[in-house]
Amino acid sequence: MAAQFEIRCTHPDAKYARQAADYAFRVADQLEQKLSRFIENSDISRINHLSAGEHAIVSYETMQCLRLARFMHAETGGAFDVATGKGLESLDLVPGEFLVCAHANGVHLDMGAIGKGYAVDRMAEVLEDWEVEQALISAGYSSVLSLEPPSGSEDWPLTISMPGKGANATLANVAGRQRALGASGIRKPDHILDPRTGKPVRLRQAAWVSAPRRVLADIGRPAEVGSSPAAVADALSTAFMIVPPVEIKKYCCRHPGLEAWILQPHLIHFVNR
């Protein structure tokens, strides 16, 4: 986590919109307190301190997020792993009791690659509840969810670009309207590990995933944790840093509307409209 959240929105009453955004930011702060591994008493830190045979009681949101993370782990054949190979399999989740039980020592969860998207989805719920529906929400520019566009616009214009090359290096334009866009990359060196080898990802520079909210929500539906499209896009973009192109192609074919881009070093675009 530890990301900078941003909301752009249009509304006839700017003060009201600002208050709605404040409320959404408070929701993000509350999630940060539960999901950040950098906060000593977060649910995730408490799980990371478990020894074999111990358990932790976690909050509703943490359990939802863990269930979605586990589902996306299976969905991506292990390529997405909030434990980067260190212990997700050794945790038992008991959703009705909000229990997380460890069967091995040394579990190390980092919810960064799904928690930001999960927070963005919850922020969207706040804005929609407040009827601030023309909005664009971002967590660290890597988990982005567009709701309705500003009046008179078709969409929120978004781009994906060559990492580190500034505005001249646009790789693709994405029309943001009821759509999530997730990005992963290795500008911060060696922070994405292949959970199957434990080694840092270096071949692929970046990956993006974009799809309408409903397509992503459908992908996550079997996790039975409600609709979290930005979280699903977040997890898929991380998985697509290591999934072979042929598998990404197949995955996009199975999910019409889902688009992906990978950069290794040339851009490859996957889409099945």
Binding site: R67, L93, V94, P95, G96, C101, E224
Partner: peptide, 14 residues
């Protein structure tokens, strides 16, 4: 709440 992760009775047993 339905769960795909573990059966409650199995959990108690283990």
């Amino acid at each position: 709440m339905p769960t795909k992760t573990i059966d409650r009775r199995d959990f108690i047993k283990t």
